[in-house]
Design a protein around this nucleic acid. Structure first.
Lengths: 110, 110
DNA sequence: AACCTTTATCGTAATATTGCAATATTAAAT
DNA sequence: ATTTAATATTGCAATATTACGATAAAGGTT
């Protein structure tokens, strides 16, 4: 096996799992951190920021892009990578709702 | 290879990656959904709620527990699984901060 | 005690992920 | 046109994940 059974779960569950999975690697968290820390989006030096080889970083960027967490557009010689607001907004809502549900439950629970 | 280089990243990055990774599977999102939907924590029927075999569910529960997202205590014959508030609070803060940073950047960015 | 119920663990097969060297691609610069 | 710089792709080895059947463990029931 090894293949995830996505067809048995709801679209929402699959979507959130996909986004969370993409964030589920320290290198990709570091990439997100870095993209948030720079002012502009022309980020041609992500490789220098990470303790990983260029092909590895490229692959992590691809995964973040596939998941919809970042956008990448060709900007002349280099590439302009950007946070994709929408995906992060959905994640924030997801965890906000969970926190609210936890708050409501607090009384009748262990 | 295949082994993640955790030692080159910050504790925070590793922590968030660990939590996100644990949520990064639809079955585990479904488990969290279910734990939030029931009123009490005596959740002896998680297996029936999922389209997966009992050992597979047990393994997913173990991973959620290892990541600190749920707590599990033996309750007589069965086991009482519970959402762990702290981990979800940390995730909410993490994504809140990201959203705030995105909001601030909005002007001088693509 | 013998049995049932519930959950965990073991073993194993299929697949996915991680990481990098080598190479390819693309566009700007000389 | 050649070189240079930045990023992507390919190929491959090491390891991790996913899933489940078989089995074990532990507590309740009869």
């Amino acid at each position: 096996m090894g293949a995830t059974k996505t067809d048995h779960f709801t679209d929402k569950q699959n979507e959130m799992a996909l986004l969370a999975k993409a964030i589920g690697h320290p290198a990709r968290v570091a990439i997100i951190d870095y993209l948030l820390s720079v002012n502009t989006c022309i980020c041609g030096d992500i490789v220098k920021e990470l303790p990983l080889a260029q092909p590895t970083v490229s692959q992590h960027l691809k995964e973040l892009k596939n998941a919809g967490l970042i956008k990448g557009e060709i900007e002349g010689n280099s590439i302009c990578y950007c946070i994709d607001e929408k995906a992060f907004a959905r994640l924030r809502v997801f965890f906000d709702r969970i926190s609210n549900k936890i708050e409501k439950k607090k009384s009748n629970c262990c």
